[in-house]
C-alpha cells in the first residue's frame, strides 16, 4: 500500500531523512518511532506530497507521489501532529467541505458523519465554530474527516495526543477495523505501550536513519519496546 524507497530529504546541509526504505502492506498497522527531530514528521509529510524530497521515491497503491500526486492523494488521509483546521468554519461545514473535496456521495457522507461523530462524541458540537474547539476536539474532528472518506491508507502523526481515553480507545478500534478491511495505517507515536499493543510492524528511526524495522514481536524480542528503544537510541 505504501512503499518508501531510498527516501532522502535534506534541509540546507542537514540530512533530515537518509536513504529510508519501508514497505507497508494492506492490512498492516505500522508504527514509526523515534526521538524528537529524528525525521518522522518529515517522512510522513513527504509520503503525503506536502514536502518534496531529494532522492528516492514513494509509492502509494503502486502510484508514485511525485508523478501522480493527485491520484495518490485520493487514496490516503493524513492528520498532522497539530491539526490546524479552518477556524472560520463550523465543525459540520468543515466535514462537508472535506466530503466535497473527496467527492463522498450525499447519503454516504451523511451516514458517515453521523456515525463517526457519534463514536467520537462530537455530534452535539458540530454546529460550533472550529475556533471554539479544544485541541482534543480538533483532533477528533480531523479524525472524523479522515474516516468519512474511507481511505485505503491512513497516515497519522502523533494521533493520540490530546485525545481522551474513550476517544483514544475508539481510534484504536477504528484503526484495527480499517486494517481488517484491507486498509493500511502508518503512524508515528511516542507512546510506546500503544505501539507495542497496536502495531503489526514497527520501524525505529534515529537521526534520519532507519535503525530497525520488522514485526513488532521480532523487533522487541524478549525485552519491552521501551527498553529496546532506549538501548537503540542511546547506543
Amino acid at each position: 500500500m505504501l512503499r518508501i524507497e531510498n527516501l532522502t530529504k535534506t534541509y540546507g546541509s542537514k540530512r533530515a531523512v537518509s536513504n529510508l526504505t519501508l514497505h507497508i502492506r494492506p492490512g498492516e498497522i505500522y508504527g514509526f518511532i523515534g526521538h524528537n527531530g529524528a525525521g518522522k514528521t518529515t517522512t510522513i509529510k513527504a509520503c503525503c506530497g506536502i514536502l518534496d524530497f531529494d532522492e528516492g521515491d514513494i509509492f502509494i497503491d503502486g502510484l508514485s507521489i511525485r508523478k501522480e500526486p493527485l491520484e495518490c492523494k485520493k487514496r490516503f488521509a493524513y492528520i498532522p501532529d497539530n491539526p490546524d483546521l479552518y477556524d472560520f468554519l463550523s465543525g459540520i461545514k468543515y466535514l462537508n467541505f472535506i466530503a466535497d473535496v473527496y467527492a463522498v456521495p450525499k447519503s454516504e457522507r451523511e451516514e458517515r458523519i453521523r456515525r463517526y461523530s457519534d463514536l467520537f462524541g462530537l455530534t452535539s458540537d458540530l454546529a460550533q465554530s472550529v475556533s471554539s474547539y479544544s485541541h482534543g476536539m480538533k483532533q477528533k474532528l480531523a479524525l472524523i474527516s479522515a474516516f468519512i472518506r474511507e481511505p485505503k491508507l491512513l497516515m497519522l502523526d502523533e494521533p493520540f495526543v490530546g485525545l481522551d481515553p474513550k476517544a483514544s480507545h475508539m481510534l484504536k478500534e477504528l484503526m484495527r477495523d480499517l486494517c481488517s478491511r484491507g486498509g493500511a495505517i502508518f503512524f508515528s507515536t511516542h507512546v510506546l505501550e500503544v505501539a507495542e499493543k497496536l502495531c503489526h510492524k514497527i520501524a525505529i528511526i534515529k537521526n534520519g536513519k532507519l535503525i530497525v524495522s520488522g514485526n513488532t514481536d521480532e523487533v522487541r524480542g524478549d525485552s519491552s519496546l521501551e527498553q529496546l528503544f532506549l538501548e537503540l537510541v542511546e547506543g
Binding site: 465543525g91 459540520i92 462537508n96 467541505f97 466530503a99 466535497d100 473535496v101 467527492a103 456521495p105 450525499k106 457522507r109 451523511e110 458523519i113 453521523r114 455530534t123 452535539s124 458540537d125 458540530l126 454546529a127 460550533q128
Partner: peptide, 15 residues
C-alpha cells in the same frame, strides 16, 4: 446545539 440537516453537495471548486 447541532441539529442534523440535509447536507449540500458541491463540486471541488465550489467547495
Amino acid at each position: 446545539e447541532y441539529r442534523e440537516r440535509e447536507l449540500k453537495v458541491s463540486s471541488v471548486r465550489a467547495a
